[in-house]
Design a protein around this nucleic acid. Structure first.
Length: 238
DNA sequence: GCGACAG
DNA sequence: ATCTTGTCGC
C-alpha cells in the first residue's frame, strides 16, 4: 500500500541531524522477512564530478541462486556534498529512484553504507529501509563509528566480531573472504543483526562484497554517462 | 582542544 | 566517492 513521504530532503545540517534522531526511534530490529526469501536486491551510487550528476543503480537477484533478474539506473543532479553522518541526504533520493523502477519487489535490500552503525543510529541503510518499509541491511566497506577487537577477528571467511559504540552492539565486522579486509554489517530496518550477518554471507560469491552490492556497484559505474546536450547518446543504455 | 569521519 | 600502474600473494 502507498504511504506518504516521511519528510523533505533539502534540509539544513541542523534539521537533518534532528530528523535522524526522530527517525531512529522508528527503526525495528526484529526480523520481519518473508516466509521464504526469493529475491534480494542491492543498490549503489556513483558520481560524475564533471557533470555533477549522481547515478544510482539497483540489481535484483534471485535467491539463493543469486542470478540477475533486473537491473535499473536512475540519474539526478548531485544534491549536496558528502558530510560524514549525513550520507543519506546525498544518496538516498537517487538510490530510491532506482529502486522504484523494480517490477518485482525484493524480500531483502542491501545498501552500501552503514545501517544503524551510525552516531544517531540512522545510516543510509536504516534511512532507506525505513522510507521504503522493507527489510534492509547496511553493508559498509569501512568504519564510521564504533570499535571492535581486531585481534579477535579471525582471518577465515565467515568470522566476525561485534561492533560496539557507547557500550552497545550496533553491528558486526565480518570477514567475507579469507585474509581480506572485513565488511561492516549492521541492520537497516525490519531485520536483526544475526539475520543480517547470515544473509550477507549467503549472498556472497567468493568476493569481498556480497553479489547484490557488487553487481549494483558495477552497474552504477558503467561508463555510460548521459551527455547533457547530446540527444544521440541516449541510445547508450544497455 | 584533538582526532575520527560510510560514500 | 574518485584519482590511478604495477605488483605481491593465494
Amino acid at each position: 500500500m502507498m504511504r506518504p513521504p516521511l519528510h523533505e530532503w533539502n534540509l539544513t545540517v541542523e534539521q537533518a541531524v534532528a530528523l535522524q534522531h526522530e527517525l531512529a526511534s522508528q527503526i525495528i530490529l526484529e526480523d520481519h522477512l518473508s516466509e521464504s526469501v526469493r529475491f534480494v536486491a542491492g543498490v549503489d551510487m556513483a558520481i560524475n564530478e564533471e557533470h555533477e550528476m549522481a547515478r544510482a543503480a539497483v540489481v535484483l537477484l534471485s535467491y539463493p541462486e543469486l542470478e540477475i533478474v533486473e537491473r535499473h539506473v536512475y540519474e539526478e543532479p548531485v544534491r549536496m556534498p558528502y558530510i560524514p553522518g549525513l550520507l543519506s541526504f546525498r544518496e538516498a533520493p537517487a538510490v530510491m529512484g532506482a529502486f522504484q523502477q523494480l517490477r518485482q519487489k525484493p524480500d531483502l535490500l542491501m545498501v552500501d553504507g552503514q545501517g544503524i552503525a551510525h552516531p544517531r543510529r540512522m545510516g543510509i541503510g536504516a534511512h532507506v529501509g525505513l522510507w521504503l518499509n522493507i527489510p534492509t541491511i547496511g553493508c559498509a566497506k569501512s568504519l564510521l563509528c564504533g570499535h571492535y577487537d581486531k585481534e579477535a577477528l579471525a582471518e577465515e571467511a565467515g568470522s566476525w566480531v561485534p561492533l560496539v559504540y557507547k557500550k552497545e552492539v550496533i553491528g558486526a565486522v565480518v570477514r567475507t573472504r579469507t585474509r581480506v579486509n572485513p565488511l561492516f554489517i549492521s541492520p537497516g530496518h525490519l531485520i536483526s543483526l544475526e539475520t543480517s550477518i547470515r544473509y550477507v554471507l549467503a549472498c556472497g560469491k567468493g568476493y569481498r562484497l556480497p553479489e547484490t552490492t557488487r553487481q549494483a556497484d558495477k552497474l552504477s559505474k558503467d561508463n555510460h554517462w548521459i551527455e547533457p546536450d547530446d540527444n544521440q547518446q541516449l541510445s547508450l543504455w544497455s
